[in-house]
């Protein structure tokens, strides 16, 4: 049975973190999965850390705030160093329901993908996000297909399962801000296989999104730029070899 690290980055998630971890724990017991929950507290300034300490999980506390990318990468490093076969990223705000986890694992086992992404937009069930966001995600779908010839309907989904090959890659380099779409380019450029599986997501259970209003314009711009730069960077690296 593969050993799986469930990485939960948490920044000021005191309202939801306990239920997220407890749900994950019970799902892994029910399905007889070998899952270790790793919560990375990204220097929260509420009671998140105190809550985490009493939960059934590995608790990692960052001394300074690194942002989502840095926090998730810390979890990846823990998974790589401790010999886990897979890492699954699960948001601390309750967007990713634990009961969808077996779907990811099953799809990975059936297809042998290096990266398995949970997508909201295959079955179009569950929380579908706002029209504006869907437009943005659609745009990324086309951009990614144009660059690396793979169709990812939900490129911003953080709900993904990656194997050791991908782990080695992201421990080396992982973007700080809004890392998900950029990581797809990184994986594909390193010839890793990936696929999507339909999952349901919920509306966030607490806290506030890092993307909204004026920030969404910055988001689109920043992610487009970093996608292009990652594309060029990995190209020139290959030629240098």
């Amino acid at each position: 049975m593969p050993r799986i690290a469930a990485i939960v980055p948490a920044y000021n998630e005191e309202e939801s973190i306990a239920s997220v971890v407890n749900e994950l724990h019970s799902v892994s017991v029910q399905n007889n999965l070998d899952i270790v929950i790793v919560v990375v507290n990204d220097c929260s300034n509420d009671s998140t850390w105190n809550l985490v300490l009493s939960l059934p999980c590995v608790a990692i506390n960052l001394p300074v705030n690194l942002g989502i990318g840095g926090a998730v990468q810390t979890g990846f490093k823990h998974a790589l160093q401790n010999g886990f076969d897979f890492a699954i990223q699960i948001d601390g705000d309750g967007q990713h329901p634990a009961e969808e986890l077996p779907k990811l694992i099953l799809a990975q086992q059936r297809n042998g993908w290096n990266i398995t992404i949970g997508s909201r937009f295959i079955d179009k069930t569950g929380f579908q996000s706002s029209t504006l966001r869907r437009t943005g995600i659609n745009y990324f779908k086309h951009l990614i297909r144009l660059l690396v010839n793979v169709t990812i309907t939900d490129s911003t989904s953080g709900f993904r399962m990656i194997d050791r090959k991908a782990l080695q890659l992201v421990c080396d380099y992982y973007p700080d801000e809004y890392p998900e779409p950029e990581a797809i380019i990184l994986y594909r450029k390193n010839n890793l296989s990936m696929g999507e599986v339909a999952v349901n997501m919920r509306q966030r259970q607490g806290g506030i999104s890092s993307i909204g209003g004026r920030a969404s314009i910055y988001y689109m711009f920043k992610v487009t730029l970093s996608i292009l730069f990652t594309f060029i960077k990995t190209n020139s690296k290959k030629q240098a070899r």
Partner: peptide
Amino acid sequence: KTLAQEIALLKQ
């Protein structure tokens, strides 16, 4: 970033 991550992992 690297230092903060190392510290957090070591502490754990």
